[in-house]
């Protein structure tokens, strides 16, 4: 009870803080200097139509490199944490996902049924995944290839690619994705990302400079220098990382 009261007290203080922030908030009448710089200089300097992609990939590209590394680290740790769980069949969590909140820890509740036989997936899911998976892959590629023109970019496209993987895993729960393929794809795209970034140091103004390729005309698919290339690499890398997380989680559940 004391715990609840303390939590409520803390939250009411926080809520009062938020309320004062909300009351005192007035939107800026114009862009702040940083945003103004991005809005004015993106088209002449980088040739990208989508300012958000230009910021993520070029202006703050170093952060993106770090972020992709963080994501890789998360995927690696998920794989590491879940790796040991497959060997001990006795300590496998029960197949019932709707366990009682608050935790039922009586040892007899470990339901032994349905171990080898997974729940059969429906006809709809099987057929739908066969129909939709290629389209989702195509959409993912479209989203990251057009990241410099339309809403989208490497991360969004990569997430769509990974959702195709998720659908595949849902439709066929016993599928084992090739970890070697995923890791190879991820390593290759990460390496190429860094190579392109270093090329910017040699051929253009600095690390991650996108002007190693011609800027083209604003709004064309082949424009904005190396941005579509980097976008595609980020998309592949993020897709591979998310897929590896999904595969790790799925295999932990199955084994």
């Amino acid at each position: 009870m004391i715990k609840h009261l303390a939590a409520l007290l803390l939250l009411s203080v926080l809520g009062a803080l938020f309320a004062s922030l909300l009351m005192g908030y007035t939107p800026d009448p114009a862009l702040n200097p940083t945003a103004r710089y991005y809005a004015e200089r993106t088209a002449p300097d980088l040739g990208a139509a989508n300012l958000v992609t230009a910021i993520v990939i070029s202006y703050r590209g170093l952060d993106t490199l770090g972020e992709v590394t963080v994501l890789f680290l998360a995927a690696a740790i998920v794989g590491l944490v879940l790796a040991g769980s497959g060997s001990r069949s006795g300590s496998r969590p029960g197949a019932e996902p709707g366990a009682e909140p608050g935790g039922n820890d009586q040892p007899g509740a470990a339901n032994p049924g349905r171990r080898g036989a997974p729940v059969p997936v429906g006809e709809l899911l099987t057929t739908g995944s066969q129909l939709l998976t290629p389209m989702m892959l195509l959409l993912g590629v479209y989203v990251f290839a057009n990241g410099h023109l339309t809403p989208g970019g490497g991360f969004q496209g990569g997430a769509i690619l990974a959702s195709a993987t998720l659908l595949l895993l849902l439709a066929e729960p016993l599928t084992r994705l090739s970890h070697r393929l995923i890791a190879g794809l991820e390593a290759l795209s990460g390496l190429l990302f860094v190579v392109i970034a270093l090329l910017g140091l040699v051929l253009a103004g600095g690390f991650l400079d996108n002007r190693i390729l011609p800027l083209g005309t604003l709004g064309n698919l082949f424009s904005a220098g190396a941005i579509p290339l980097i976008s595609a690499l980020i998309g592949l890398k993020v897709g591979a990382e998310f897929s590896s997380i999904l595969a790790s989680l799925s295999e932990a559940e199955e084994s």
């Binding site: 862009l31 088209a43 300012l51």
Partner: peptide
């Protein structure tokens, strides 16, 4: 653009 877009 600086007068037409929101903060990216």
């Amino acid at each position: 653009a600086a007068a037409r877009v929101i903060d990216p």
